[in-house]
Simulated scan of single mutants.
Amino acid sequence: MQIDLSDKTAIVTGSTGGIGLAAAKGLARAGAQVVVNGRDSDRVEAAIRAVLDAVPRSDVSGVAADLGAAEGCDSLVAAVPEADILVNNVGIFGPKPFFEIDDGTWERFFQLNVMSGVRLSRAYLPKMMERGWGRVVFISSESGLNIPADMIHYGFTKTAMLSLSRGLAKLASGTGVTVNSVLPGPTMSEGVKEMLKEMAEAKGVSIEEAGEMFVKSERPSSLLGRLASVEEVANMIVYACSKEASATSGGALRVDGGVVDSIVP
């Protein structure tokens, strides 16, 4: 399959690292004009350089905006008024005991993980529908199905993204626009590496070995038996954004390594 997005503009939110940056590189490799995003202008510039290093002569730009507030979403839309592809990737995570999660933390997770996708879809989806082509992808998680007891607030937001993407797919029915979710499982992103560093040091093992230990102890249903790479997740995202994925809409596309113990999506 030869994915060609050379005539498309793609926005990837939260793309200064991890899955978002890998997706930006993958979309650039497919020929898309890519817009990266992050809160910090220095990190946005670094992400632009990283995409150019991976895909020389690619068309990549960036917008520094905090999408955890309506004003940040408005700034991104003002800078890039139209897009053919929107990847709602931005999000935060972190374990915390349920009884210690205050209202402010719940609100912060909801505003960034969920409302950023609501606001940006509301801004970009109508024009996609008018043009008769578009792709919206929400980066959910297997944690949206297997709610982790130590990250209930995170799992809640990822479940909400599944509902949002399915509803928007119905809204866009018959317009040539598809809306899907991608559900990564445990993935070796920068944030997860930081989380594993303490375990690796305590056990005297590498980060990769600590990742395998984590998967076996915390996600024993995994068929992969290891953390996925960000590139492996990005491959699914790029496919969902492609012209070839025209018959895939309203889906929950799992890249979870088989963590979710189900034979149906």
Rank of each mutant, 00 (worst) to 15 (best):
Ala210Asp: 08
Arg219Leu: 15
Ser206Ala: 08
Val215Met: 06
Ala247Ser: 14
Gly204Glu: 04
Ser221Pro: 01
Val233Lys: 10
Ile207Cys: 06
Leu196Ala: 08
Ile237Phe: 07
Val205Met: 14
Val205Phe: 11
Ala210Gln: 09
Asp256Phe: 04
Thr248Ile: 15
Gly250Lys: 00
Gly185Asp: 03
Ser206Phe: 10
Leu196Asp: 08
Thr187Val: 07
Leu196His: 04
Thr187Tyr: 05
Ser189Glu: 09
Leu253Cys: 00
Ala245Leu: 09
Thr248Met: 13
Ala202Leu: 08
Tyr239Cys: 03
Glu209Cys: 09
Arg254Ser: 09
Arg219Phe: 15
Thr248Gln: 09
Arg254Val: 02
Gly211Tyr: 05
Glu209Thr: 10
Lys203Glu: 13
Glu201Phe: 03
Met236Ile: 15
Ile237Glu: 11
Gly191Trp: 09
Phe214Val: 05
Ala252Asn: 10
Val192Gly: 02
Ala210Met: 12
Asn235Ser: 13
Lys203Arg: 14
Lys216Pro: 03
Ser249Tyr: 00
Val230Gln: 11
Met213Asn: 03
Ala240Asn: 15
Leu223Thr: 13
Leu253Asp: 06
Lys203Ile: 06
Gly204Pro: 07
Pro186Ile: 02
Gly258Ile: 00
Pro186Asp: 06
Ala247His: 13
Gly185His: 02
Ile237Gln: 10
Glu198Gly: 09
Asn235Glu: 15
Ala228Cys: 10
Glu198Trp: 05
Leu224Pro: 03
Val238Leu: 07
Ala234Lys: 13
Met213Tyr: 09
Val259His: 04
Ser229Cys: 06
Val215Lys: 08
Val230Phe: 01
Lys197Leu: 13
Gly258Tyr: 11
Leu253Thr: 03
Thr187Trp: 01
Tyr239His: 12
Val255Pro: 01
Val215Gly: 04
Glu190His: 11
Lys197Trp: 03
Cys241Ser: 01
Thr248Cys: 08
Ser222His: 10
Glu209His: 00
Gly185Trp: 00
Lys193Tyr: 01
Ala200Ile: 08
Ser242Leu: 09
Lys193Met: 14
Ile237Pro: 12
Met195Leu: 14
Ser206Val: 09
Pro186Phe: 00
Ala252Trp: 06
Val205Gln: 12
Val238Asp: 09
Met213Cys: 05
Leu253Trp: 05
Ser221Met: 14
Ser222Lys: 03
Gly211Ala: 01
Val215Gln: 06
Ala202Pro: 11
Ser221Glu: 15
Tyr239Trp: 15
Asp256Tyr: 07
Ala245Lys: 10
Cys241Thr: 01
Val230Met: 11
Thr248Lys: 00
Arg254Lys: 11
Ser246Gly: 13
Gly225Ile: 06
Ala252Val: 05
Lys216Arg: 14
Ala234Gln: 12
Val233Met: 05
Ile237Arg: 14
Glu208Gln: 14
Gly211Lys: 07
Ala228His: 09
Thr248Pro: 06
Cys241His: 00
Gly251Leu: 02
Pro220Lys: 09
Glu244Arg: 13
Gly250Pro: 01
Leu224Gln: 07
Gly211Leu: 01
Ala247Phe: 14
Met188His: 02
Gly258Pro: 10
Leu227Phe: 01
Gly258Leu: 07
Glu209Tyr: 01
Gly204Gln: 02
Gly191Gln: 04
Ala245Gly: 10
Asp256Asn: 06
Val233Asn: 05
Tyr239Gln: 04
Arg226Cys: 00
Lys203Tyr: 00
Glu209Arg: 13
Lys203Cys: 02
Ala202Arg: 12
Tyr239Phe: 15
